[in-house]
């Protein structure tokens, strides 16, 4: 009986239709400002969901709730079927090995070289001890983001785009099942932005991750999104593919696309 239940659960987990992130009626305020207003969002395994919206609309708050950096005032956030707010510290730590978070700035540890930045999650989180295995994994992930030649550089010696690539490599090195990208192309020139967007797609294909991408960059959304959710004033106002939303009759939705037209 128990074996059947476990098998069923495993089948559900590996299923493409499994909902890996389930946000239900979540609200969050900072002081008197309500940044999330009763939002609901379900993300399936392997899906690339882009959350689009103006700056300061609470887009980042959504993914911070997913990874347990912030706790919603009301509503439920479930990841892999488990409620994040109810998790113990150990369970949260376990969850965070499965959910990677790429910060807007890359958030590289600036007192360490690129190699040491990559080693940090391997030795501290995965508790890997075999130096050969560690080196192999570092080289593989840096090669995937095209940064192998910068392995011994300090973060201060890297350009903005390289920092984002290195940040992405450090997040990917623990092979998370879900990737959360917070404004991955902000502050980059159009060519580098496109490269980072393509890289997100490559990473998703190579490591078969589920991705949530927070952005206001329409080109990034066009390249990466399977589904786009548009956010305005703390609420999700529209949902669909890039082409569906582009031809929307809603003026506010169209305004996002008109900027790039």
């Amino acid at each position: 009986m128990e074996e059947t239940a476990v098998k069923h659960k495993e089948e559900a987990r590996s299923s493409k239709h499994e909902v890996v992130v389930d946000i239900e009626h979540v609200s969050k305020s900072f002081g008197s400002k309500e940044v999330l207003k009763d939002i609901t969002l379900k993300i399936k395994r392997g899906e690339n969901v882009v959350v689009l919206g103006k700056s300061g609309e609470g887009k980042s708050v959504t993914i911070q709730c997913i990874v347990g950096l912030l706790t919603p005032d009301s509503g439920i956030v479930k990841v892999f079927g488990e409620e994040v707010a109810e998790m113990s510290n150990e369970e949260l730590k376990e969850l965070r090995t499965k959910v990677g978070f790429l910060f807007q700035s890359g958030a590289l540890y600036d007192s360490m070289t690129v190699r040491e930045n990559m080693e940090f999650p391997l030795t501290r989180v995965l508790k890997m001890k075999d130096q050969g295995e560690i080196d192999q994994r570092i080289e593989e992930v840096l090669d995937a983001v095209g940064l192998l030649e910068a392995i011994d550089k300090m973060p201060s010696d890297l350009s903005g785009g390289m920092r984002k690539r290195a940040g992405l490599a450090r997040t990917m090195i623990v092979r998370p099942e879900i990737m959360l990208y917070d404004e991955p192309t902000t502050g980059l020139d159009p060519i580098t932005s496109r490269e980072i967007s393509q890289l997100i797609l490559q990473v998703q294909k190579k490591y078969k991750t589920t991705s949530v991408i927070i952005t206001h960059d329409m080109e990034c959304a066009r390249i990466t999104a399977d589904r786009i959710v548009i956010m305005d004033d703390g609420e999700y106002i529209a949902e669909g593919s890039f082409d569906e939303l582009k031809s929307s009759k809603d003026e506010l939705v169209r305004s996002f696309f008109n900027e790039t037209a």
């Binding site: 990874v67 950096l69 730590k93 376990e94 965070r96 090995t97 959910v99 990677g100 978070f101 910060f103 807007q104 700035s105 958030a107 590289l108 540890y109 600036d110 007192s111 940090f120 999650p121 501290r124 989180v125 940040g167 450090r170 997040t171 623990v174």
Partner: peptide, 24 residues
């Protein structure tokens, strides 16, 4: 040092990676 790590989200990055910033 820790203040600038906080501002540049390095401490948050450590925390969300599952490492322990207090210990380190």
């Amino acid at each position: 040092e820790l203040g600038s790590m906080k501002v540049t989200e390095q401490i948050d990055a450590m925390e969300v990676s599952g490492a322990n910033p207090t210990q380190y």
